[in-house]
Each structure stands twice: as C-alpha cells, then as structure tokens.
Design a protein around this nucleic acid. Structure first.
Lengths: 356, 356
DNA sequence: CTGTTAGCGCATTCAG
DNA sequence: CTGAATGCGCTAACAG
C-alpha cells in the first residue's frame, strides 16, 4: 500500500492524501472519501519514507550497556516519561558492555531516522569522543562526564566519599579503635575497570578519600576488580575471603557486585558450618553473611534490598538523570538550543545505620 | 554529506561510489580515489535511504514488556546471539507492560526499516491478533502460544504441574500426612492476570493439577493476584500472611514476585522478633524466611539464587527461545519460509530438594 | 568496469 | 482548496 494507490482508489491526488494525513487544507468531501479508502485498505503510511523527506521521526534512540539492570531501567524510565509526554517514542540498543558495539549502534542511530540519541555511558574512548564531536544528530550522555556533548552525571566521588566515611565509622564502632593497625587493612573493596571514569575512578577515589578522612586506609591487597556482574563479584569476594581471613567489610562498586559478594559469603558460611545449618531444625533459616562480615554497595537496588533487608548503599537519581537528559535532548532537537550543558546530580546514603 | 557530493569530489559517478560501498565492480584506481574522499569527509551513507530502496535493513525489532527482567534479557541475549552471527542488528522497544503500547511499537516497527519483529508476548488481545495476521513484516512471538504467527513458548503447564507436585511433597514431608484437613489449605499461591495465558493460566492450572495429583487442594482464599513486580508480590504476600497464619508455603508465579514474598516474610520476622534479632549479638544474621514458611517461584532468577541460596523454582529455556525465535525469523526473512511453526520448549526443576 | 536513468514512498513547493 | 511536479539519498537496471 502506497499513498499513490490510496489516491487512485479515492479518486484524488497523492498530495491530497498526504494533506489528509498531516492535517493540511482539504475539503470535507474528499476527506471523507479518503478516510473510507484508508479504512478499507488498512493503509499505513511508511514512516520510513516520511522521515526521509521530513527529517523528523519523533523518535529517539537510547544506547544502553545492558538490558537487565535496575539502574539502566530507571534511567530509561525517566527518558520514556518525558518523551512520551512530548509525543516521542524510544528505541533501545543494548551493547552488552562492549564499547565497540556502542559505536556501532551510535552510528546506526545516526543514519537512521531518529531525532536524537541518549548514550548511557560506560567507557568513553577516543572513538566515542570523535563520534560526539561529529555526530549529525544531537546526543546527550547520561552517567558519565564529557565535554564533547551535553551530559548528566552523578556525584560518584561524593557518594564514594560518603560511603567511605560510613564504612570507617562502622569499623570504629565495631572495633572501638581509630586508625590503628588492628582496624586498618580490614576493609576490602571490589571495584571495576578504571576505564569507567564514573564508577571505576571517581567512586573508588571518593571511597578511599572518605576512609582516609576517618583515618582508615584501604590497602591494595584488599582490593579487586570485577565486571559489572554478580558472578564476577562472587569470584572476587571468594578470592578476597580466601586470602584475608581478617576482612570485616566488603565494599562493592555496585549493588550487583555486592549481590555476588553476598553469595560468596553465603557459600562460605555453608562450607564452614554445614552441620550446624542442617541440624538446626529450622531449615529455612539462611545465614546471609558470615557473622562478622558486612557488605556495602552503590545503586540502591530494590531487589537486593527486598531479599536481604537492605545493605548500606547509595541512591543516585537515575530516573531524574533520564528525565533531565531527555529534556536536554528535546531542547536541542526542537528549539535548537546551542548552549552546552553539564549537569551533576547528587545522591543519598541508604541504610547507613543498618543493623546499628 | 550525500553520495552525490562524494561522487563529485572524487570525480566519479554516484553509482561508482555506491558500488564501492557495496562491493560491486570497480577499478582499483577509482576505488582509491573514493576511499580517500570518504576518509577525508567522514562520509557515512544514510542507512535510511538505502533501506527505502533495498527494502532490507539487516535489522530486527524486538518488542519487550519490560527492560529490567532476567527472563527478558535472557531471551534478547539469545536473539542477539544468532542475529549478530548472521549480520543483523537488534533494536528494542519496551512497553512497560502496557498492551496498547505493544501495538504502538509493533506498528512503529512495521513501518520502520526492520526486516522482522520478535514480540516477547504477555497478553495477546484481539488487536494483537489483527496485527499478526496483517503485518507487512514477518513476526515471531516468543513466550506465548498463538496460531497467528510463528511462536515459541514454554511448557508452563508442565512446569506448574511439576512445581505443584514438588510443593505437595514438601508439605507431606513436613506434616507427615497426606491430603488431610491439616495439610490442605496451607499452601498459598500468588498468580498474575489470567489475560496472560502462559503465566496467568497455564502455569497456575498446572500448579493446581500438580497439587491435586498429590492430594493437595489449593483453596481460593489462599490465592492472590499480583503484577509482575516485586512490590506487588510483597503486598500480596503480606495480605496472605495477615489473613492466614497457617500458611506453610507461598508459591509465586514468578521469581520476581517470590522476591517480594520473601521481603514480606522478612518484614514479618522483624516485626515478630525485633528484640531477638538485634540482641543476638551477630548483627549480620538475617532470617530470610519465617522459620516455618517457604517460598517458591518460577524462572530461576540468578540474582535471587545468589542472595538467598536458591528457592525451589523452574528453569525455562529463555535464551534458547530467543535463539530459536531469531532463527525462525531469519528463515522467513531470508528464505521466505512459509510453513508456520509452533515450538514448545521444556523446563527443568531447580532446587526442588532445597534444604531437604 | 562505468555513468546515466529511474524510481523507493512520501511531503512540499507552486501554479492553478 | 487542489493536483502536478520535484527531490530526500540511495541502489538497480541498463546501455555503454
């Protein structure tokens, strides 16, 4: 079905049909004829051809690192919220944490009918920068700082620092000492690649600074790097536990990694007290953490909170960043806003006094 | 930048450039010239215009009910795997569990340059059926049975039945009785809307049948309906617990709902033994379930497994359904396969003897 | 091997 | 108000 065929069937010109479709001048009489033909045929105009002409799609593409993530879904929920309110639709492309795929999908969107792109950033490579500089369609980056595009990011350093302080206090409360050898070296950290500036660098540096401010040092032997997966967190934590029996706290760069760490502690407990657990009579009792080890995270994952009761973590305004990001994008799409924007969003500690 | 401009700059025809781009006959000499111009200008062909011509996009659209879901992400992982291997890319559209949005996005994809569509189905309405029947592009439905399109679905009934039997056995082991009043009425079920044929009907009916086969009856007073969210499961479970102090098992239609139920039990335990918990000295000990209540789910969620140690659940071949779905789709896209296919995938019980 | 030509399906002039 | 004509950027014949 093409607009031309509809025009023939209705005995009008294709232009008339086009006007009918787009609200141009047209007589009631022809309007009715066209309406009927369209109804009968079930004709649907090709969005594709329209876009080739108009250069407007009322569509934005969002490139995300992965699909199954609470933080990502909160951001996209925010984006979707403002988009739909303003008559836009949203398409997603998931890169499965492969930066090269990110470029591929950015280019795909660039040459596809989308009016703008939101990149939920992880690693910003030279290729990324080149793209941001040269892109034909407006882009806003969410979750990472960059000077090559409008961006909205979170105060990862501040959040890390706050968490560092919280952890240090926890240690002190437990040990009743301050910065002595007895306490130092007993907090472990599972981070991520430093290529991720927000999570891998700022968050970790902040964490270190927060600890230090309270007189606690994070020793290198007590740190590990993990991927952004539970499984990776599990292995990192296991490794940590094997090598350092004196660990009291395992702080993780994300709640997902923290979930893996909790899994590791669970496995550890089982190993250590298989008899006690199964002989206890109340089979349904799980010991989530080795009694002297606690886990912290970042991201305020609701799932984790539900099933564990909540570990100390940080709430970022993910949904807000999505909202603001979409607004920024629409500003440049619709109003040609040219002034670059960098926006930093705050955070909120969660469960810092958990189990106090 | 258009192909025409490149052609001028390189002193060749636009057709030559097109051939260069698409691997047609072209002399080394011109090839070199064109290569240079393209490099200098950073020209990128408009995928959009190309598709208008070729009617091929090497792209498939996937409509999903939500983004933050392990089952959905496993399906898309499967799809992506075969797609990328065959040179296709994947775009996602999330409907946030609103069936109307599903139609909207299906129509978007229909008129957008995609070669095919995968619908991860929830509710199949009359509108859906109409779309499936009339769609201009091939569609395959994953997760629901339908006769209006190629579909791949899971044995929800069988899985429900197996779970029913498992639960019944659990009850019997615990109570040492079989089908007496003492045991009947003590298993609760949190289901979902019956509009979802797979999860809301088959799974639940199967569950009932499984229980019945073992002499246990599920009484209506012990069932609740929930959305596909943790929060909804939480409230449903709380309600159940309030009304029926004799519940021994809460079976949930999904692991996500089960997570909510676990959260409810946690909240309950806290309420009931606030002193005991905080006075126990080992602050990090969580009691996940009220000692006499267990929770079961469906879906084999890895996150849940990690942090709880694993509840009885069933593993569906989600990734496999994605793989098969994509293969089916490509068969009709590339080879014009016309024979309709319905594929039912099996399941595997997980943790059925958990804490035996 | 190469350039010219003719559309893909639509929206937009521009004369009526 | 309306239709004929033009072209968005590209590819697919077609004749060189």
């Amino acid at each position: 079905m093409t607009i031309k065929e509809i025009a023939q069937l209705a005995g009008v010109s294709s232009a008339a049909v086009s006007r009918y479709l787009n609200g141009g001048y047209i007589s009631e009489e022809k309007k009715e004829k066209i309406r009927k033909v369209i109804e009968e045929t079930g004709y649907q105009p090709s969005a594709q051809a329209r876009m080739l002409r108009t250069k407007r799609a009322c569509l934005v593409g969002v490139v995300v690192p992965k699909i199954n993530s609470e933080s990502v879904s909160r951001v996209t929920a925010g984006i979707e919220q403002v988009l739909s309110r303003r008559g836009y639709q949203m398409l997603l492309a998931s890169t499965d944490n492969e930066p090269e795929k990110e470029i591929t999908y950015l280019r795909l969107f660039e040459n596809y009918p989308v009016d703008g792109i939101v990149l939920i950033g992880t690693v910003i490579t030279a290729e990324h920068r080149r793209f941001l500089k040269e892109s034909k369609v407006p882009v806003v980056v969410v979750g990472q700082y960059t000077k090559y595009a409008n961006c909205i990011y979170h105060d990862d350093y501040g959040a890390g620092k706050a968490m560092g302080k919280t952890v240090a206090e926890l240690m002190m409360r437990t040990n009743g000492k301050r910065g002595t050898e007895e306490t130092s070296g007993k907090v472990a950290y599972i981070g991520v690649t430093r290529e991720d500036k927000a999570v891998g660098v700022s968050r970790e540096e902040g964490f270190r600074a927060g600890l230090k401010a309270s007189g606690v040092e994070l020793s290198e032997a007590y740190t590990r790097k993990a991927e952004f997966t539970m499984d990776s967190g599990y292995h990192a934590a296991l490794d940590l536990l094997d090598e350092h029996p004196d660990i009291q706290i395992i702080s993780c760069a994300t709640d997902t990694i923290a979930a893996g760490a909790i899994e590791a502690l669970l496995a550890y407990s089982r190993e250590q007290v298989p008899e006690a657990a199964s002989a206890s009579g109340t089979r349904m009792m799980y010991i989530l953490n080795r009694s002297d080890i606690r886990v912290t995270g970042f991201g305020d994952n609701q799932f984790l909170k539900a099933v564990t009761g909540g570990i100390p973590t940080v709430h970022f305004g993910y949904k807000t960043s999505g909202i603001r990001g979409a607004e920024l994008l629409l500003d440049v799409i619709e109003r040609g806003e040219k002034i670059p924007v960098e926006m930093k969003l705050g955070f909120r500690m969660v469960n810092e006094n958990e189990m106090e």
